[in-house]
Design a protein around this nucleic acid. Structure first.
Length: 696
DNA sequence: ATTCCCCACCTTTTT
DNA sequence: GGTGGGGAAT
């Protein structure tokens, strides 16, 4: 094959990973199982994308290439890179690309979203109604809570686990495929006494979901998994794909590994990429054993290619990262080597308190920007979403635009859930959870009447026409007739999606204004939701994809135009994985916050925190600053109280690590004087009285 | 049966 | 600052 220009920029191991296997005589490409162990910044996603391009060049149908990842953000990135690189490679080797080839490269996404697609497609083989709704986490918790009350578990004399805990246990047990007893003993020992009750609860939970025709996140994997445990179905599903490529393999769990195994039992065409040092999802039942044990799952063993050449960061940045990992008791000997040379020394900056930290970061960001590093090339990372609160205020004050990833819960807001419920119900009349919420939006409709109405509908085969024959309580009667009309309109299969959200909003408006005291502050969200709805081709796609892929940044809510401008990135470390920036600031490098106080109990949790730190550090290309606020307000303490702790630099900042860091400190305005005011005589004088008059 | 009001609790990380 | 639970008023 002379078509090799796409390989030119790759190093040896990368090229080996990209080309592993052999072209088939006619067209197509055959390969055995392949594991790519790739340290941070070694170009793993790029390598994966090049491999996709390589397959396509050799005539593999892009529609028969399945690309899976664990997180949404990685899925987006993988899709984008695969698309770009394939396009480029095809242009160079074949002298042109037909757009349809690229469009066929559509099987790329998270395990959950691909699961959703496959389940809807294969639903009739699974006795599954393809109109199923996908519940988000809080829907699932609501459902769990209802059953918890119903079964009388809430009123135990001894405290029964809370709904979130119940759900966590359930999810962990499902994703690890281990017995409940074992899950309880090892992960939730304080709940071990409730094994029998929990089993009862979970059985009811599963039954209820089936009755409502709803699936939770775990079900998307679980149903897929069940589908793959039937050899004939598994063979059928697997035969859709010649190649399966998985990114972030270290974060997959048992269920996902078994799904892969079912898709490609002999490992043919299976490529997985990962880095054991970046495993940070054990709380989601991720199993590092997946990646460690991958080669031996197959006979002959899977090929292993290791990438250690780091393209991203300067050696100074890598020195710090290597030093942190070197202290992990369980040694991951992977010494990252930069091809970029030494670079600037990474800094550890001490500030007196959180406000100063915010000021320091803002000051530095602007300074870097003057040095021609645009805001987009800079990022602020933190352990927990709320850690950026104070910084966000300061950024707003200084008019520095930013986008925040992770933590934000647009879909959790009550008014969004109201509207989503209404649409979910219209989309899936059996979705009683959605119906229950929607019905109670009307005045005079509480749980009891809502249940009556639902029973009435049930006995009429869930036809919305039956709403007409139900007698609602007096205060609801007006709203009731309008709801009947609305639901019939929305349920009409002829009705196009465009405009449905607007119809729903019209009905919702009076209830919205009655229910929420400060409804004005919430109207913007409804506008956003309506705007967002226009981006989806159908109601089902809107509901499902918004649940699986919620707007993850404040920017998504701030509207599109902002995205053309320069903006700073704020992100949790979990959401930052796979990303890179010129300059990275890491907040709160303080014990209790980093590692998180919730993780200080068990050694393996501490180790995960260490890997998390490693992920954070290795995001930086050129400039890295760790910020250590000395006076750290305790979260979770009494609100008015000024409780705080002093000292407590992160335990990961040992002598050996500090050796690679330049220690400095920063004094902000608040530490300058006792009265907290800037000694600043230059500020222009204000004619206050004139200003006040201007207002009228 | 519903609604309203007060109080406790809250905040890891993601699909 | 918001939400969910519990209890009293309507």
């Amino acid at each position: 094959m002379s078509n090799t220009s796409h390989l030119e920029k790759l190093n040896g191991p990368q090229r080996k990973a990209v080309t592993f296997g052999e072209p088939l005589p006619e067209k197509g490409f055959k390969s055995g199982p392949l594991l790519i162990v790739a340290g941070a910044g070694t170009g793993k996603t790029d390598t994966l994308a090049h491999r996709v391009a390589h397959l396509v060049i050799h005539g593999v149908d892009p529609a028969r290439i399945l690309m899976l990842t664990f997180t949404r953000r990685a899925a987006t990135e993988m899709r984008r890179r695969a698309h770009d690189i394939t396009k480029k490679a095809l242009n160079e080797t074949l002298g042109g690309v037909s757009q349809t080839i690229l469009q066929r490269l559509s099987w790329a996404g998270t395990f959950h979203s691909i699961g959703n697609r496959l389940l809807r497609h294969y639903s009739r083989h699974l006795k599954l109604d393809p109109q199923f709704s996908v519940m988000d986490r809080s829907d699932a918790a609501d459902l769990m809570d209802g059953l918890r009350q119903e079964l009388g578990l809430a009123a135990k004399e001894q405290r029964f686990p809370r709904k979130e805990t119940c759900l966590q246990i359930y999810s962990y047990r499902v994703n690890t495929q281990r017995p409940l007893k074992e899950t309880l003993e090892q992960q939730y020992p304080w709940c071990a006494q409730w094994e029998a009750d929990l089993t009862r609860l979970y059985r009811a939970y599963v039954e209820q979901k089936q009755r409502y025709n709803v699936l939770d996140y775990d079900d998307l994997l679980l149903y897929w998994h069940v589908m793959m445990s039937d050899p004939r179905l598994a063979q059928h599903v697997g035969s859709n794909f010649d190649h399966v490529l998985v990114d972030e393999y270290q974060d997959t769990n048992k269920l996902q590994a078994e799904i892969l195994h079912g898709l490609k039992p002999d490992g043919s065409g299976l490529t997985v990429v990962g880095d054991d040092a970046q495993a940070i999802y054990s709380f989601r039942a991720a199993a590092v054993e997946n990646i460690l044990g991958f080669p031996d799952r197959f006979t002959p063993r899977a090929e292993v290619v290791t990438l250690a050449q780091n393209y991203r960061s300067t050696q100074e940045v890598l020195d710090v990262s290597n030093a942190v990992m070197a202290e992990a008791p369980r040694q991951y000997r992977k010494h990252l080597l930069s091809i970029r040379g030494k670079g600037a020394r990474a800094r550890i900056v001490t500030v007196d308190e959180l406000q100063t930290q915010a000021e320091y970061v803002c000051t530095e960001i602007l300074r870097r920007r003057e040095a021609n590093v645009p805001l987009k090339r800079q990022a602020v990372l933190f352990r927990t979403s709320s850690h950026s609160d104070i910084l966000e205020v300061e950024l707003a004050k200084r008019k520095i635009p930013f986008v925040k990833f992770g933590g934000l819960k647009f879909l959790e807001a009550g008014h969004i859930k109201d509207l989503m419920s209404l649409l979910r119900w219209a989309d899936n009349p059996r979705n009683t959870l959605a119906a229950f919420r929607t019905l109670q939006l009307m005045p005079g409709m509480g749980p009891v009447n809502a249940r009556k109405a639902i029973e009435h509908l049930e006995s009429n085969g869930h036809a919305f026409a039956a709403l007409k024959t139900f007698a609602p309580p007096q205060p609801a009667s007006g709203a009731w007739d309008k709801l009947t009309e609305l639901m019939l309109a929305l349920a009409d299969p002829q009705r196009q999606w465009l405009g449905q959200l607007h119809l729903a909003r019209d009905w919702y408006k009076p209830h919205f204004e009655r229910i929420y005291e400060h409804f004005h502050t919430r109207i913007g969200d409804l506008d956003q939701l309506e705007l967002l709805s226009g981006q989806y081709p159908s109601r089902e796609r809107f509901l499902t994809e918004l649940t699986l892929d919620p707007p993850n940044a404040t920017s998504d809510l701030a509207g599109q135009p902002v995205l053309d401008e320069d903006y700073l990135i704020l992100t949790t470390i979990h959401s930052a994985k796979g990303m890179e920036w010129d300059t990275v600031y890491l907040l709160n490098v303080v014990d209790g916050s980093f590692p998180s106080e919730f993780s200080t109990g068990k050694p393996e949790l501490i180790e995960e925190e260490r890997r998390l730190l490693y992920v954070a550090l290795t995001r930086a290309q050129n400039d890295l600053a760790l910020v250590v606020p000395l006076k750290f307000h305790l979260t979770n303490q009494s609100r008015q109280g000024d409780a705080h702790v002093y000292g407590g630099r992160s335990r990961f900042m040992t002598e050996k690590v500090l050796k690679h860091l330049e220690a400095t400190s920063f004094h902000g305005s608040s530490s300058a004087g006792g009265d907290n005011l800037r000694a600043d005589s230059e500020s222009s004088t204000l004619d206050v009285s004139a200003r006040l008059k201007e207002m009228w």
